[in-house]
Design a protein around this nucleic acid. Structure first.
Lengths: 179, 179
DNA sequence: CCGAATTATTTTAAGATTAAAATATGATGC
DNA sequence: GCATCATATTTTAATCTTAAAATAATTCGG
């Protein structure tokens, strides 16, 4: 692969002998590890996949619940007055059209309701039912327990530090993504 | 929610006055933050989602390529002799049946080939074609660039530290998951 | 050698996901 | 008022995904 940055590994031959400045330049311009970010991404993805598949499996086996439904209910649980579909889709980071069928299935289960916003008849407001709230509070407790168990080899300090660093990463991602 | 751990918040009433040991016990048994692990998971998930949707979008717009296909090719790229479907499914952390159709589509694109293992006729060996290798090497370079840009607000040290900490998390997850 | 257990893959059915197009409603400028 | 643009949701087609059942091939104990 050709160098795009204009930087290239410096060899001793590039460097006039006897100059301290040039010695430092060698260090400063040392070929950077081009794969640092890739490695971080792959590791992040592995961790996310491991947690996700574990949670998915336990939701299914212990509670006959799927992860997308759980995620949707989790968002509604914190909003007693319900959420518009578009807000829900932003928070869940899934496409808008995805939610229509997902909400339909949760309505069929009796866990959520869908009503038309009185002020804006374009908008649908989705809300957790009493039954949904009851079920979810049980799910949520189990869910937290699973996570505590899965991360059991990390100290509270490590967890907090990781959370902090990921906040920084998150800021960079939001800042640097296109539009 | 009832306490399951047997621990509960200590109040002054629990503590005989005038004992240093008991004062320390208050600190030691201070009600732990029950949501630390949940917060870490949610932040991890947010970061993963942000990166994934960005990569997905760019693959589609710039290269008419989907993320699952890219991921599959990425695995094969590092294995010039190809991989069995079952190994591929383990590495990609997706279900076995998922790959059948995915490989079919990549074969239709001309990017991979599927042959029967000569020693074990149950096994299918999937391999990147010449065209697939060529395309992927271009994709991979762009992909690395996107990641570098997305993480541009983090210093190399931060990236490496995050990568390290995630390695620790990964170990815990593997160690603690069921079976 | 043969039957049983194991392993590798495919098939199936249901669900989840996306992007893009279509539909419906609201808001704004004139 | 009305045309136009914007916003909110649904629909559509294709792909992806999973879990479970089915199929096919291998291994292994006796």
């Amino acid at each position: 692969m050709p160098e795009k940055t204009g930087q290239r590994p410096h060899s001793a031959a590039d460097t006039p002998l006897g100059s301290f400045d040039d010695v430092e330049a060698i260090v400063r311009l040392e070929p950077r590890d081009q794969k640092r970010e890739l490695r971080l991404w792959l590791r992040l993805l592995t961790c996310a996949n491991l947690i996700e598949s574990e949670i998915r499996q336990r939701l299914r086996i212990d509670y006959d619940m799927t992860l997308p439904r759980f995620d949707l209910m989790a968002q509604l649980y914190r909003e007693p007055d319900g959420l518009r579909l578009s807000d829900l889709s932003k928070r869940m980071m899934v496409s808008n059209g995805n939610l229509t069928a997902l909400v339909d299935r949760l309505i069929a289960d009796g866990y959520v309701s869908r009503t038309t916003d009185t002020n804006d008849r374009r908008a649908a407001v989705v809300q957790l039912t009493k039954a949904g709230t009851l079920i979810f509070s049980q799910l949520a407790e189990a869910h937290e327990g699973w996570l505590r168990a899965l991360m059991g080899d990390l100290s509270p300090v490590q967890i907090q530090s990781l959370t902090q660093d990921l906040a920084q990463l998150k800021r960079s991602l939001i800042h640097r993504r296109q539009d």
